[in-house]
Design a protein around this nucleic acid. Structure first.
Length: 482
RNA sequence: GUCCCCAUCGUCUAGCCAGGUCCAGGACACCGGCCUUUCACGCCGGCAACACGGGUUCAAAUCCCGUUGGGGACGCCA
């Protein structure tokens, strides 16, 4: 094969969900791995259900995932003349015929066959009627009635189908538009697509398509049918299972590289490796290591992988993606060393971008909201001396570097006889509002002298207020315990 | 109903094609511990699987058959 050409052919009848995204990813990766060509094509021959807004949504999702294409997007709706041309060839070769059987009758036949326990198939009424191009007639492919059609699938191995299983399927609707099986084959032939990676819900279509390739005298592409992605209930993944669109993952704060990584690992492996950068994926992806069994989508693992990618991404590269999440909190994030330090400290503590932004909030607001449990435990009268000592010591300190701060705290320890934990926790709550946060010296260094002192004073005042309203030595009042 | 595919820890998977090195390895989740100013991160340890039944073979997670289970397809949808 000279150059590998793959394609992703979504029908714009819905959003790009995880399953579809994985198919796109596989095809894209394989093309990139082989230095081949990747074609994007919208299969919009179903005019009833297709919509431009889905085209936009799919484009947006692909863009977010970082999937680019070398050709297209093509639209089947704009290639009607091409299908007409190939239909004429089929007709001329005697491999197709016009059919005027009314849909209602076909439907009735199908129902009856199924009820009887047989396979629903066209009875061939018009097969030998030699009808001409009657207006309003559909066109059927004259399928071989005996023999076998073999699909040599690179992931499933050879699969033989008895031709008796298939009927004369429609290739052209009565309104002149091509049906799926015909349009795909014509497109893949004319676009030079020679490698087809798709969900295994297409295996039953493949023999029909192979017959079409043969009738058209075109060489067969390589077929790789990957198992489908199932929901936790082991049924086909759908809106019920998590997000309807991959862009929802973007909105929830997932990194495109993490989603990409997760999707690829669901159905493909490279030994024991779990974490892959985009470049590694391109370097290693192959058809050889695609799995044969269906996989269940696990949101927990996606989350864990996202956290890992968050940790692995340089803070500076996180500023842009983080911006919308901070904006959501009313914070305009700007780049720079301070922001990067904030991100660096929080990245290993976050699962998503949204998570990180939420945790970083306290850096930007002096009036930190004290978490009830944290305040009750640490902002107590008992903590007052420690807080006061730290405030005094810091007031006199010029160097707010982390090591200087640590020295200052050691001095407070010596002075008060308290352990570091007894000092650090109240300070932590005073500065961040929470009992869990990045390192205390790290926070102070980022906050700087002014803000730190301001927050310390505020906490001291808070404790004073709590005492006077609820008796000496008591924890601040809590609205209610539940 | 008919046809097709699949079957290793709860989940994603390695191992299977070229049988022994597998009383089955990694990851997520979960449970311990270490580190430690908190929480994470990191590190160490634990729990946990070859669906079942027959073959073939000196030897089977690996090969064959069957059963069961799961998924998919049966459109003038894609």
């Amino acid at each position: 094969m000279s150059q590998v050409v793959t394609r992703f052919p979504p029908s714009p009848t819905g959003f790009l969900h995880l399953g579809g995204a994985r198919t796109a990813v596989f095809n894209w990766l394989y093309a990139r791995h082989c230095r081949g060509r990747f074609v994007l094509r919208f299969e919009d021959t179903d005019t009833e259900r297709s919509s431009p807004r889905f085209v936009e949504a799919i484009l947006e999702a692909l863009h977010w995932l970082g999937i680019d294409w070398d050709e297209g997007p093509h639209f089947q709706s704009r290639r009607l003349d091409v299908y007409r041309d190939y239909l004429a060839r089929l007709l001329a070769a005697g491999r197709a015929y016009y059919c005027t059987c009314p849909p209602e009758r076909l439907e009735a036949m199908r129902r009856e066959a199924m009820a009887r326990g047989g396979k629903p198939r066209y009875d061939g009424t018009c097969r030998n009627r030699g009808l001409g191009p009657v207006p309003g007639a559909a066109v059927r492919f004259k399928a071989p009635q005996s023999g076998t059609t073999v699909l040599r699938d690179v992931v499933k191995g050879p699969i033989a189908f008895d031709n008796g299983e298939f009927d004369d399927f429609i290739v052209c609707r009565s309104d002149g538009t091509p049906t799926y099986n015909f349009a795909v084959v014509v497109d893949d032939i004319t676009m030079g697509v020679n490698t087809i990676i798709r969900g295994d819900d297409h295996v039953m279509n493949t023999p029909k398509q192979i017959q079409l390739y043969e009738a058209l005298g075109a060489p067969l592409p390589v077929f790789a049918h990957v198992p489908m992605v199932l929901g936790p209930d082991r049924t086909r993944l759908s809106k019920r299972h998590g997000a309807a669109s991959v862009t929802e993952y973007r909105d929830q704060g997932f990194l495109p590289d993490a989603v990409l990584n997760y999707l690829v690992r669901l159905g493909w492996s490279h030994g024991d490796q779990e974490f892959f950068t985009r470049a590694e994926l391109i370097a290693h992806f192959d058809l050889e290591n695609l799995g044969r069994s269906a996989g269940v989508f696990d949101p927990e693992k996606l989350l864990a992988l996202n956290a890992e990618h968050l940790r692995a991404t340089p803070p500076a590269a996180l500023v842009e993606p983080l911006r919308p999440f901070f904006r959501e909190l009313g914070i305009e994030l700007e780049g720079g060393p301070r922001t990067e330090k904030i991100i660096a400290g929080l990245a290993p503590r976050s699962k998503t971008l949204a998570d990180l932004a939420r945790q970083a909030r306290f850096y930007f607001e002096d009036e930190v909201a004290y978490e009830e449990a944290a305040a009750r435990a640490h902002l107590t009268a008992e903590a007052l001396p420690a807080l006061a000592a730290v405030a005094a010591r810091l007031k006199a300190l010029e160097d707010f570097g982390e090591s200087a701060l640590e020295e200052a705290f050691r001095a407070v320890m010596a002075e008060t006889g308290l352990k570091l934990g007894k000092i650090a926790q109240p300070v932590r709550v005073a500065l961040s509002g929470r009992a869990a946060s990045p390192g205390i010296f790290e926070i102070i260094a980022i906050l700087g002298k002014e803000a730190t002192l301001r927050r310390l004073e505020r906490a001291i005042a808070f404790i004073g207020r709590s005492r006077s309203s609820s008796g000496a030595g008591e924890a601040p009042p809590s609205p209610k315990r539940t």
